[in-house]
Design a binder for these strands. Structure first.
Lengths: 140, 140
DNA sequence: ATTTATGATTGTATAATACAACTATAAACC
DNA sequence: GGTTTATAGTTGTATTATACAATCATAAAT
């Protein structure tokens, strides 16, 4: 790999993180953290914080708080595991599902706006490479 | 642009931000925020917080605190602007320059490790597309 | 029956940020 | 030249996202 490519990736990643960490904080709907958690629940539903934390690669305490917040907002419901007195499931509610869709659509739209001038090919590559990079991070 | 590409970018960006926001927090050297500020100073030196804030697209108060922290650690020095009693310049110190290099090299190495299996072409595209995406974000 | 492991929560700390209030100085305006 | 307004910077306060450590309750193992 050329050193130039490496240096570009290094710098642009740093910038991207900074930019997006705050850019996505300006909504009164779902915050970024809740969003990923809700998505995860929407997909893998019926799991407890421990599983979620593993899937999301976060600390259990973090997920516990996030899940409590979602529960508070009625976006998920917390159900006692009948077979284990310590454990709970979380389930996305219909309302949560609906909010998730609204938020996701808004995100898609705003990203689409950013990419208007991009050749299809670039958008396709960008998605593929981001995914590949995340995979590498996950396996690290 | 295909909807598939858009959806991939949307999801993978969310994941990436989350992953990197914390992944890069585990160093006892420079934190991410200081890093970009120090880089900026290393490049554009001899400017005050207002200029830096504009360049970095951050609030002045944020930069003020970050710069104070760097000054505290002797990574930069704060110099009174002789022509304007309200203003200051910041200048990276030789020590700051050295620390910046050390940190940057470490970052390069760890990213390089993530990309070992990537075709050169992918690394090149990834860098280019990240840069392009950041540019779009900046102009938004 | 006691000890140990596990699922979850809560206390505490840290990092990065923004907005609002404030201070000091400079510039603009009659 | 004195008053008003603009500007550079700092500080107070709040928010969001996170981790680690301590704790609680229950389950599993011995």
């Amino acid at each position: 790999m050329s050193n130039q490519s490496l240096e570009t990736i290094e710098l642009e990643l740093a910038i991207l993180i900074r930019r997006l960490t705050t850019a996505t904080a300006d909504n009164r709907n779902l915050d970024r953290a809740s969003y990923l958690l809700l998505r995860q629940l929407s997909d893998s539903g019926q799991v407890g914080v421990k599983t979620l934390a593993r899937e999301l690669q976060l600390d259990v305490s973090t997920v516990s708080r996030q899940a409590a917040a979602l529960d508070q907002k009625k976006l998920v419901e917390k159900i006692k595991d009948p077979t284990d007195g310590r454990a709970f499931f979380y389930n996305i509610t219909p309302y949560g599902q609906q909010e998730l869709e609204i938020y996701r659509t808004a995100r898609l739209t705003s990203i689409e706006r950013l990419l208007t001038d991009w050749p299809d090919e670039d958008a396709e590559s960008f998605g593929r490479l981001l995914k590949q990079f995340n995979q590498a991070l996950r396996e690290r």
